[in-house]
């Protein structure tokens, strides 16, 4: 053995490398089969960021398919309900430049909820079938109504309604949702007084 090595160092080296290559290749091949990840993990992360309105304005049937598409290279600016905030978060996650919202797919609007004018409803169940999050309650020939807390404001129920009795109502700001605005650096109007340090201004 030792003799062979000393006599043919070149052949030995090549053989050793070949053996190592075979061993590592086998290990890697085994790992690839054994620890195969189901689906694309980045798509899950993208899906977490998307607003889950399931509205389809991006051109995909729901948030999950769109997140899959983004993972496969689709543009990140096709989600109007998420708006700038979602684009910024996606850009951050994917280490891309944040781009403005693609107007083709709609504008960023205030959040709305669907409201069914109940005395006009004929009970056709078309909206119930259209609702992606099961937020409409009702049965055939019975009045339907929207569970406001579950409605994502996706607009998908408006189109199928044969009697046009569904309104999308913008959600008004209430005492609970009101918040201080970020101060405008150029404004003199400061609502909070924490500080009008006495005499300092003069």
């Amino acid at each position: 053995m030792l003799e062979f090595i000393t006599q043919f160092p070149l052949v030995t080296a090549v053989l050793a490398l070949l053996c190592m290559g075979a061993v590592f290749g086998a290990v890697l091949g085994f790992a690839a089969v054994k620890f195969k990840t189901e689906g694309n993990p980045i798509a899950d992360q993208i899906n977490e960021i998307l607003p889950q309105t399931q509205c389809g304005q991006c051109g995909y049937p729901g948030c999950r398919p769109y997140s899959q598409a983004i993972a496969d290279g689709e543009a990140i600016n096709k989600c109007p309900p998420g708006g700038e905030a979602t684009i910024a978060a996606l850009a951050d996650l994917l280490d891309m430049e944040a781009i403005p919202l693609d107007e083709e797919h709609g504008e960023e609007k205030v959040t709305t909820v669907a409201y069914i004018r109940e005395d006009e409803c004929i009970g056709c169940t078309k909206c119930i079938q259209a609702c992606p999050v099961d937020a409409i309650l009702g049965a055939a020939k019975q009045m339907h109504t929207v569970i406001i807390g579950e409605c994502t404001g996706c607009d998908l129920c408006v189109e199928p309604c044969p009697v046009d009795c569904i309104d999308m109502i913008p959600q008004e700001e209430t005492l609970q949702t009101w918040q201080w605005d970020l101060p405008d650096p150029n404004s003199r109007r400061v609502e909070i007084i924490a500080t009008d340090a006495q005499g300092r201004a003069a």
């Binding site: 970020l182 101060p183 909070i192 924490a194 500080t195 300092r200």
Partner: peptide, 10 residues
């Protein structure tokens, strides 16, 4: 004279 607290509240 930066209204710092207002930034934090927001």
């Amino acid at each position: 004279h930066i209204p710092l607290v207002q930034y934090y509240r927001s």
